[in-house]
């Protein structure tokens, strides 16, 4: 049996994000992509489950960037057994969650995994998170905001985080789809040499898929939030700034 992990590349939000002239997408040429942070946690959780149960880990992704290989080879170097890439006529475009889930569902069904793990959310999932969308399409049990998993006979026991540190324990019949918030351990690091080795020694399986109709999220325009204009910026040398901060605190009786 296998554990399927879905990886998605997303614009790195630490970088400056520019809006394309169309107004309905980012300027994809200036974007730098990273694997969705929560997907990295999903992969780590799957690798931890593999260590406990011996399941194979298959990483799956839809290549919307033309750069997915890097992410897949890195996952193989970290300990995944197989990598599957969905390719089609959608490079450089923004696929809605429903379009992504629609492309992934038949491939996942074919892989027939015990569990599907992906990140709890992504910075660009305007029409909702992937795990519940895919769960609904496959009609498999699903839940998100998962911070711990344990596989048992015919079920997966998960810990779901609510708020203020409150945890809910759930038991889902497998196959199930999980949206991972945080793996039980910090996602492992893999040296570049090992990634290169994976590139030499393993192959990525490719699946050609049709571009879905209505594949983009529905929106009229993107915009930067209006600067609330609240923050007064303090400028000058670090010591000038420190002095100003202390003045502000003194004026309010906070120091």
């Amino acid at each position: 049996m296998t554990l399927a992990v879905i990886l998605k590349q997303v614009p790195d939000v630490v970088e400056e994000l520019a809006i394309a002239p169309s107004g309905t997408d980012l300027d994809r040429d200036s974007v730098s992509y990273v694997v969705n942070e929560f997907d990295e946690h999903a992969l780590e959780e799957a690798l931890l489950l593999r260590e406990a149960t011996g399941e194979d880990v298959v990483v799956v992704g839809v290549d919307t960037t033309g750069e997915l290989d890097q992410a897949l080879y890195t996952a193989l170097a970290k300990g995944a057994q197989r990598a599957v890439k969905l390719v089609g006529d959608f490079e450089g475009s923004w696929l809605s969650t429903r379009a992504l889930a629609g492309l992934l569902a038949p491939v996942i069904r074919e892989l027939s995994p015990r569990l599907v793990l992906t990140g709890v959310q992504a910075p660009d999932d305007l029409d909702g998170q992937l795990a519940p969308t895919l769960g609904a399409l496959l009609d498999w049990p699903h839940t998100g905001v998962v911070v711990g998993t344990e596989l048992a006979d015919g079920v997966v026991r998960v810990r779901k985080e609510l708020w203020g540190g409150i945890m809910l324990d759930l038991e889902l019949a497998t196959p199930a789809v999980l949206g991972i918030q945080a793996a039980r351990a910090t996602p492992r690091y893999v040296p570049v040499g090992r990634v290169r080795q994976a590139m030499r020694e393993s192959t990525i399986e490719e699946v050609e898929v049709e571009t879905p109709v209505e594949s983009a999220p529905k929106l009229s325009r993107l915009r930067a939030p209006e600067a609330a204009g609240r923050a007064e910026m303090l400028t000058g040398s670090p010591s000038d700034v420190a002095e100003r901060i202390l003045e502000i605190l003194r004026a309010r009786g906070l120091y």
Binding site: V13, L17, P123, D124, P217, A224, P225
Partner: peptide, 10 residues
């Protein structure tokens, strides 16, 4: 969206 850096009007 995008960590609060971009808003989408729908």
């Amino acid at each position: 969206l995008f960590g609060g850096k971009i808003l989408a009007d729908c």
